[in-house]
Amino acid sequence: MQVTTKAIVLSSLKYGDTSLIVKAFTQTDGLKSYLLKGVLASKKGKLKAAYFLPLTQLELTATHKNKGTLETIREVKVLNPYKSLHTDIVKNSLVLFLAEMLGNSIQEEQQDASLYNYLEYSMQWLDSNETIANFHLLFLLNLTKFLGFYPEESEGINSYFDLQEGQFVASPTLNPLIENENAASFKRLLGINFDALKGIKIAKGIRESLLKSVILYFELHLHGFRKPKSLAVLNAVFD
């Protein structure tokens, strides 16, 4: 079946000497993988490797057989071209990290328009704003809404966040916890949008510790989730 759909690139892997396997989250069919034969060798073809950088927003005309095999792309054009995501070293490191997190988290080959719209908006926001030190923390927390394990917010004085149960508790449990200053910063990120990040300051050490906890939160709640290899690069950039 031929479809035309928006898509966001999650990964691009070299296959053989001249081809790529591209994994993308599509607006119409969820997660899809495509084989781009000869794209690295052809300079005149409609498909160019530069179109498939992580988190690039595309419009694809593709053939979807929906049999769990690699699909094919007939035509592609870039939507919402980025001004800074792939040229600013900090933003590019964020993009590589978040693309890997998304690739390890999204498993469904089915339409999820709300998730697609969230990803599209988030990357456009990141591209056009400069107050981004805590962007990845809020991005990942809000992502859990679509994956089904958003933290249960607490209106009381509960000062420990139980990562296994996904909720704040009044006293320590045997499960992994976010506590003390980390828990206070964690609470401040719940229920806000990206524009509110301008008013939130989190110390570097707490930010790194929180990110480790958020990644563990994903591990605990997503079957088969793998820790991102790009985390070390991200930490180095924010050093």
Rank of each mutant, 00 (worst) to 15 (best):
N117G: 08
N235F: 10
E181M: 08
K48Q: 05
L140A: 05
E75S: 08
K44Y: 10
G166P: 05
I157A: 07
K6H: 06
T26C: 08
I8M: 10
E181R: 11
Q124L: 14
T26S: 08
G45I: 01
G148C: 14
Q2G: 12
Q27G: 11
K91Y: 00
T144V: 00
N180M: 10
P172V: 08
E108N: 11
N80E: 09
R207I: 06
T144H: 00
S128H: 08
A183F: 13
T69P: 00
E153L: 14
I8G: 01
S93Q: 00
A113Q: 14
K212Q: 12
L174D: 12
E208Q: 14
N104A: 03
L96E: 05
E100F: 03
D88N: 06
S11K: 09
N235Q: 06
I8F: 02
L197M: 15
L174T: 15
Q167E: 13
L189M: 03
L141V: 13
K201C: 13
H221R: 13
A7K: 06
L141Q: 03
L115D: 09
L163A: 10
V169D: 01
K227N: 00
D17T: 01
L115H: 07
H136N: 07
V3L: 15
F218W: 08
M1H: 08
F52C: 04
N182Q: 12
Q124H: 09
L147E: 06
E219V: 10
P81Y: 09
Y160A: 11
Y160R: 10
V78M: 10
K83P: 05
N175K: 04
T18P: 09
G16N: 00
K46L: 13
Y160Q: 07
S171H: 07
S209A: 10
T131C: 15
D112I: 03
S12M: 01
N193A: 05
Q111D: 02
E155W: 12
N193W: 04
L189S: 01
E165N: 10
V169H: 01
V22S: 03
L94Y: 09
N129K: 03
D112P: 05
N182S: 14
K204I: 15
S185Y: 01
G148A: 15
